[in-house]
């Protein structure tokens, strides 16, 4: 008798057939799509399979979740060791894996909550990323006086989101999983004039490697 393998389902399904589909920790991850060879239009990439955590502590400034330095002010973001850590408020940070290789296990500290399976996590990549976001949100996500990467918490398509502006050509959006498919459908429709298309995870990992090295 064989034990059934763990199967985890992304909250979004793209209307496209990937050219490279790989299993990873129970997820079927679309690494690439046929149109991925050139980044001539913005791409919407599903990162929901990548591990995410919330970490909470009343004395957050004295803590180092996953050994990371906690950004001192809400809205500040730091990237180290393949992890991105975003300060949400006085007591909470969200942490996500954007690097290569195996992500760390969740430490036993009670301050950690694994939010991988409760959130949808998307990336928008490409030079028209600001135009895409203007189609779906009134948030000021590219205020030039803020230092990238930075976190904005607010509505995108009326859905409460955490939006990390990595650069002007890359945005990360996370929100409750239940909104996932409707959110993606609405975004692709609303921003269709920009030529936005779905993209594979490989485009995102290549972008991260170019900006931050093979973390």
């Amino acid at each position: 008798m064989t034990t059934p393998s763990l199967h985890r389902q992304s909250p979004v399904v793209f209307d496209a057939t990937p050219t490279k589909l790989e299993p990873q920790d129970g997820w079927n991850v679309a690494r690439s799509y046929p149109q991925d060879s050139t980044l001539d239009s913005p791409r919407l990439i599903d990162l929901s399979h990548r591990p995410r955590w919330d970490y909470q502590d009343s004395c957050l400034d004295e803590k180092s979740p996953f050994g990371l330095h906690v950004p001192p002010r809400p809205g500040e973001v730091a990237i180290a060791s393949g992890l991105i850590i975003s300060r949400m408020n006085r007591t909470q940070v969200s942490i996500g894996s954007i690097g290569f290789g195996a992500p760390p296990d969740t430490p036993p500290d009670v301050g950690y909550t694994d939010t991988t399976d409760s959130h949808c996590w998307l990336a928008i990549l490409g030079k028209n990323t600001p135009t895409v976001m203007e189609c779906v949100s009134s948030l000021d996500l590219f205020f030039p006086e803020r230092i990238t990467p930075f976190l904005t918490q607010g509505p995108v398509l009326h859905v409460p989101c955490q939006v990390v502006t990595m650069e002007t050509d890359c945005i990360l959006i996370s929100f409750s999983r239940g909104y996932g498919q409707t959110f993606v459908d609405a975004l692709l429709h609303s921003a269709s004039d920009t030529g936005v298309q779905v993209g594979g995870e490989q485009m995102f990992t290549d972008w991260v490697a170019e900006k931050y090295g093979a973390t």
Binding site: P74, M88, N89, Q153, G154, P155, H158, P160
Partner: peptide, 8 residues
């Protein structure tokens, strides 16, 4: 209550 944002 910042329901559409940080939840504070």
């Amino acid at each position: 209550y910042h329901t559409g944002g940080c939840g504070v």
